[in-house]
Each structure stands twice: as structure tokens, then as C-alpha cells.
Design a binder for these strands. Sequence first.
DNA 1: ATCTGGTTTAACTAACCGGTTAGATATGGC
DNA 2: GCCATATCTAACCGGTTAGTTAAACCAGAT
Lengths: 221, 221
Amino acid sequence: MARARTDSDPRVRILDVAAQVFASSGFAGARIDDIAERARVNKAMLYYHVGDKQALYAAVLLQTIDHALARIDAALAAARSAEERLRVIVSTVAAAAQENPNFAPLMLRELASGGQSIPDQVVRRMARLFRTVAEILADGERAGRFRNVDPVMTHMSIMGSIIVLTAGAPIRRRIRDVVGGPRASFVDRSAADIAAHFSDLILEGLQKRVPAPARRRTRTK
Amino acid sequence: MARARTDSDPRVRILDVAAQVFASSGFAGARIDDIAERARVNKAMLYYHVGDKQALYAAVLLQTIDHALARIDAALAAARSAEERLRVIVSTVAAAAQENPNFAPLMLRELASGGQSIPDQVVRRMARLFRTVAEILADGERAGRFRNVDPVMTHMSIMGSIIVLTAGAPIRRRIRDVVGGPRASFVDRSAADIAAHFSDLILEGLQKRVPAPARRRTRTK
DNA sequence: ATCTGGTTTAACTAACCGGTTAGATATGGC
DNA sequence: GCCATATCTAACCGGTTAGTTAAACCAGAT
């Protein structure tokens, strides 16, 4: 046990291929025979090493989110101020999502199906990430830098935007192909682009302002 | 033809049920027999009235997005300033998503699968919504109210956040059940909550500021 | 050499599922 | 009444799919 987890380990190959297939076809659309074949493994071996389709799917989810969270933890270690920490979270999630192209689709599909088949282990990971963000927001508010916002919605806005932005490239391509002209700049957005756009947006959006000499109309109603 | 499109119209019943089933199970997970049974229609009648699974799915997508877009158009007619128009878009999309619980899952699933099976008709609708938002952003910038932002990413941030926020309730429930205590306020978010949260966030985030006495470090590079 | 336990394979199966068909029934025009 | 057309049904079909099985293979221990 504790063997080298290289490509020669059939379990590693199976999980890698399964992540791809589940990401692009969903749980119901994924074919066990397909996964086995692409992982160059006999189907019965897949059942022997991993278990049934549900177990395979759960293992894929866990591996995918663990890898992303590990990146965030590592990057967060260096950051200090609330602003900086939030920026780090945004850019790390964007980078992780771009680097592992299965991440965003898997999350989107789970979101669409209400997270019914997310194992508890994975839910706890999600909760931990939420707590991290909520702490940052509370810190920033305590330091007088952020205004008071709903941490639940703020967290989901952040993750939702980044994931949708990352997964949105193919749809942007379709939109451009159907209606757009030759606008090359319509489709491609690097992880850095996404991170810069969204962290600017949210840091400006969260900033606490001085009451400002009332130039606006009164908030009617 | 052009008959009353009531519940007695089998095509209406089929599309309604199919929207539910596709939203909660995805295209691959949806069962034609299931849809037919729940629509109280013989399976062959489903093929007779609508066509095969793909055609049914395309019809569902078109109907779903058309209904949402119609709401937006209607609501937008009254709005004037760029800020107001953006706020209307956010709150109308949030309201439409909450009212039709199939909308968000359908969009999320399409996003996850790269929009391969979105019919061109629907893509053109999406493009039109993008153009509307892009115009608002350009207007606001011209009026000196908004800063210069990437309209493509801004549009996807808006839609992504609202859709994820709306579809996120079941996952919030799972997170609360697994780790959270009795925090009732963790799960429920009305369309108005979502709209208020996000339009505040984005309007603040987009606002153009006066250059402000340089207190920050210079933007290196 | 042989036994033991983990690993691998080809073949199988039982259920499922999208789509079809042949024929029945209803409807409206004449 | 009668024909043409639209609507509807039960039964069927062939391919697919998750999961199983029984037997083979192979490495190390004795």
C-alpha cells in the first residue's frame, strides 16, 4: 500500500478519465464502458478497484475539490489584509478552475441537481471554504474596509461568477459563431483576466464608503 | 391550428413536464417514458406532437428562455438611466429564475456541457440579452457613471451570480444540514434578497470614482 | 512444487430505453 | 353516410448499459 500514485496505477488512471467523462457528460450521460476503455482497464477491474458508478463519481468529486482547496490553502498562507486575502481566493479559484477543466462543469452539474449526490465529505469541504470567506468578510468589516454584506450570498456570488466565467468559453464561442463577427476578443479569457475583472468588481463593490455629501436623490420609498 | 394553449393541450403538458424533468435530471438522465407518463400522454403521442428527445429538449430550452426574456423586455421598457436599467435586469432575472425553478438548472447544465445542444434560435436570444447589457454598460460609461469594464465578463458575472444564487438553495441546505447548526437564515433567499444583494454589489463595483488623492501604492506594471 | 491471496479477463445477463409500428378511434367536410 | 385526415394506443424491437461471474493468472510464502 501507499504505492506510487503514478499513471501506472490503474486507480489513478480511472479517476482521471472518469473526471473528464463525468465533467463533459454528467453522471447519467457517463458510460462505465467508456471510462474503462479510455483508462485502458477492463470494466470488472474498475469495479474491483473503485466500486460502482456512484462510488466512482463520489471519488471524482472528492479528488477534484480537494485539489482545488489545497491550492487555495497554500496561496492563502501568505496573504494578510482582508482585501489581499479575498483577491488571493478569487485568483486562486480562477487559476484552479482554468487548470483543471473538469472543476467548473462538475460543480455546475451538482448545482443544477441540487447537490443530492455530493458526499458529506465534500459538503464539509465546501462549508470550510465558506467559513474562510465569511471570516475574511467579517475581518474586513471589523477593520472598517468592507461594508456589511450577507456572507452566504457574497460567497456564492464569488464562486458562481468565477465558475461560470471559466466554463463560459464554449458558449461565448457559440454566441460569436452564430451572431458575432470576427471578434476574436469575445471568447478567450485567461484565468488572470477573470481574476482581475472579478476581484476589481467585488472589491469595489464591497468597499465601505464615507457617507459622501448627499448628491443623489433621496432613496424614495 | 392556433388552438387554445391550455392544460388540455397535450403539447403544453408535455413541454411543462419535460422542462421539470430535464431541469432535475439533465438530458441524458431524463426518461421519455417518464415524461410521457407524467404528462398523461402515450409515448407515441409525444413523438407525434413534439418529435424525438432532442427536439423536445430544444423546445423546452426555447420556451424557457423566451419566457424569461419577455419578462426582461417588459420590465426594461420603463427604466431610464443606466443604473436603473441594470437594476431592472438584475431584479427581473432573479424574479424570473425564482418563479420558474427550471430556468437556472437548465442554464447551468447547458453551461456545463458547453452549450453544444443549444439551438441557434436560443443562442440568438442569449446574444440579444448580452447586447442589451453591453449597451447599458456603454451608456453608463459615456454618462460618466460607470468605469470601463469588459462587457463580456461583466454580463456573464451578472447572469452567473444570479443563476447560481437562485439554484444554490438546495446546496445551502445540504451544507447547513451537514455542518451548520440551526441557522434558519442560511438557506432561504428570496428573489428580492438576491436582487438587492447583487445589484448593490455590482452597481458599487461598476461605479466610476473620482481619481481620489493617491493613497494606494502605484499600480505597478 | 504447491498453496494462497490479490489481480485480471472475457463473457454473460437482466433490465432498461429511445424509437417504431400497425392498427384503432375520433373528427370534420361533403 | 362516407371518405380523408388527424389523433391516439398497446405492443413491440433492437441496441445499450450497469453490474456479475467464473475462471485464469501471477507473485510471494512455505
